[in-house]
Simulated scan of single mutants.
Amino acid sequence: MNEAQQPPEPPAVEGVVAPGYEQVKDAFTAGFRRLGERGAAVTVYRDGHKVVDLWGGTRDAHGTEPWRRGTAQIVRSATKGVAAAVLLLLHQRGQLDLEAPVVTYWPQYKEHGKDRTLVRHLLGHRAGVPALDRPLTPAEAMDQDRAAAAVAAQAPAWEPGTDHGYHAQTYGFLTAEIVRRVTGRSLGSWAAAHIAAPLGLDLWIGLPEEERWRVGRLAPLDPLPAGGLRSRPRRDIAAAYADPASLTRRAFGSVAPGADENDPAYWAAELPASNGIATARGLARFYAALIGDVDGGRRLFTPATLAMARTQESEGPDRVLVARSRFGAGYMLHSPATPLLAPGSFGHPGRGGSLAFADPESGLALAYVTNGLRKGVTADPRAQALVRAVRSAL
């Protein structure tokens, strides 16, 4: 092979790893070399202390500006884990009863027999409204009044509480309106005041203008190089995503295409299902604080709330994901479809690659963020390589 044919060198990886976690750096570096990674970061906490903090590549998946220590990224559905924490903390403070009917707080939600929906059904993806008969435009989705009215008026696809299916977009509208009805504030502003500020987190649902400089640009990655790991969905899953009439396509399409995820106006909006922005460091510290004290900050969840977060609400064939899924109170739980660290782990992936979770038994919290999007909702090979490396380190 002559010099012109030599493959490009992977970008330098910066940051630190504690002794014993070197294989995590190896796995992270291999993502650039073998899996086409362009820009990413990973952070791991153990027993409240940071043991891995790495970043590399470029801020733009097809650009040249380097990913820096403070670079943040849209994490898509990994946002749902932050939204869940807001509702659980309101419950912990006695302001919200998860066993109460949604109409206790939001009377307009009663349409089409939804008056029997409980707040915990929203968190467990059991509400029965994963899709809207008329998709919202991006502008409507970013208008909380209009988005809330749309889900309130929607007839359920199944009797609430009797089955489950991933509420890919509507989860955000549902949780946001509950928080607004209970507190008078938006979910993003409540999270900023009661979660991000006390813990010093680089984490936002609704990015302030002065933080725009941080955000890397999302872009699809090129096909995996020869020899890269490749996963093929089952035929029934592929068919569900391809069929415009399927509940799967309708759920993910509850907001019509057209939003530019690289537009600062989109970053400033509050979409608690999909547009949270965070550094890997901020997201990992958030999960570390759910399970224990962290350096310079106190834990967020009491033991009772932590138990509630990972108590199984839903398990089995998912009407939207067309695979077996497991959910606690707003969090995905460890399963073959969503492999985390161990059976007691809880967290949330983001469609395209990002992943964040905590494992109380080992005292570990991990967050991986990327600007290079791969197809798939769960089990991205880059994130899974990092999980395996952490498991080996333990």
Results as ranks from 00 to 15, higher is better:
176 A>G: 12
199 L>Y: 04
87 L>C: 12
27 A>W: 08
258 G>D: 10
214 R>P: 12
106 W>C: 06
288 A>Q: 13
63 G>V: 03
364 L>W: 00
201 L>D: 05
278 A>S: 15
280 A>H: 07
152 A>S: 15
394 L>T: 15
54 L>W: 09
216 G>C: 09
394 L>G: 07
93 R>E: 14
3 E>I: 11
44 V>Y: 11
106 W>H: 06
51 V>S: 10
388 R>S: 12
81 G>K: 01
184 G>A: 13
99 E>M: 04
376 G>N: 11
150 A>W: 11
173 F>K: 05
95 Q>P: 05
289 A>S: 13
251 A>H: 05
310 R>H: 12
322 V>R: 15
159 E>Y: 00
364 L>F: 03
305 T>S: 10
86 V>L: 02
216 G>R: 00
367 A>K: 08
241 Y>P: 02
328 G>K: 08
178 I>S: 01
305 T>N: 08
49 H>P: 00
130 P>R: 05
13 V>W: 14
2 N>M: 08
52 V>G: 13
106 W>D: 06
300 L>F: 00
245 A>N: 14
351 R>E: 09
247 L>A: 08
208 P>A: 03
386 L>M: 11
301 F>Y: 14
322 V>S: 07
171 Y>Q: 01
393 A>T: 06
349 P>A: 10
386 L>H: 10
355 L>K: 09
391 R>K: 13
105 Y>K: 04
49 H>C: 13
50 K>T: 11
75 V>S: 01
262 N>K: 03
337 A>N: 11
334 H>M: 10
390 V>E: 10
311 T>V: 02
292 G>S: 12
306 L>K: 08
189 S>C: 01
231 S>G: 14
105 Y>W: 05
133 D>Y: 00
143 D>M: 10
299 R>L: 07
22 E>T: 13
287 Y>G: 07
146 R>N: 00
153 A>S: 11
86 V>P: 02
